[in-house]
């Protein structure tokens, strides 16, 4: 269970990103967060892994108060959460394979698992042939899929995906949606931030709509409405 409690965020000096946002995502739920560009979707997701800290309010995952964890505890929080970043965040001096392997090495997985799983997950996102390329040798959509593969590979309890289809064509987008649903079915809580109407309308899942940093709608089996 993930709980946002009266979250406000003001980027210094005075850029207001979120105002008093509260909602709860149940375990195994699939929740989309939608809204215009600049509505605060990324900011909200970043707070879950403490990439940003809220100006006020609290976030809980199960009984853990995420917002009060110290530096030393952060790696453990982040290992529970798979994150697809809007700006990919791939390690520039590691190959595609190494980027994904790194996420598994971090949690101390054995080499044999890594050797078996990385090619599998790469095949899943259609990048089997690109394993030995560096990020700068990839297209935007390919980078996005590497980021997606990295977030999946260690089977996190929670997956946060920030605009994972932003650079993809329709076919790839539908693939990613199918994958997200599948992962969710297998027991992962998914929070998806997007402003892609096709994605949201296809999902038929809960939709939280942000506008100007505030929650203006929260609908089960929602549609993308602004």
């Amino acid at each position: 269970m993930i709980k946002f409690e009266k979250i406000s965020k003001i980027y210094p000096p005075d850029s207001v990103a979120l105002k008093d946002v509260s909602f709860t995502v149940e375990k195994n739920e699939f929740c989309s967060v939608v809204g215009r560009s600049g509505a605060g979707k990324s900011t909200l997701l970043k707070m879950l892994i403490r990439e940003e800290d809220p100006t006020s309010g609290k976030i809980f995952i199960d009984d853990v108060e995420v917002t009060s964890l110290n530096r030393k505890e952060l790696p453990f929080l982040r290992r529970k959460i798979g994150a697809v970043f809007q700006d990919f965040k791939l390690l520039p001096y590691k190959t595609v394979y190494e980027n994904i392997a790194f996420a598994m090495e971090v949690i101390g997985m054995d080499e044999e698992f890594i050797k078996a799983d990385v090619p599998q997950v790469l095949a899943l996102v259609g990048l089997a042939k690109k394993a030995n390329l560096f990020p700068y040798q990839l297209s935007g959509g390919e980078k996005q899929r590497v980021g997606f593969a990295r977030a999946l590979v260690y089977r996190p309890e929670i997956l946060i995906a920030d605009e994972p289809t932003g650079n993809l064509d329709l076919l790839n987008t539908l693939d990613v949606i199918r994958l997200l649903l599948k992962i969710n079915e297998l027991g992962t809580t998914v929070i998806l931030a997007t402003h892609d109407k096709t994605v949201v309308d296809n999902l038929q899942k809960r939709v939280v709509t942000l506008n100007d940093g505030k929650v203006i709608r929260d609908a089960k089996q929602g549609k993308y409405i602004l």
Partner: peptide, 19 residues
């Protein structure tokens, strides 16, 4: 200098400081 970006990313995917 280029390590700044890398280190940020490594932290975000859950790597500990010494790793």
């Amino acid at each position: 200098h280029t390590a700044k970006e890398e280190i940020g990313i490594m932290r975000l995917v859950g790597a500990s400081d010494w790793f």
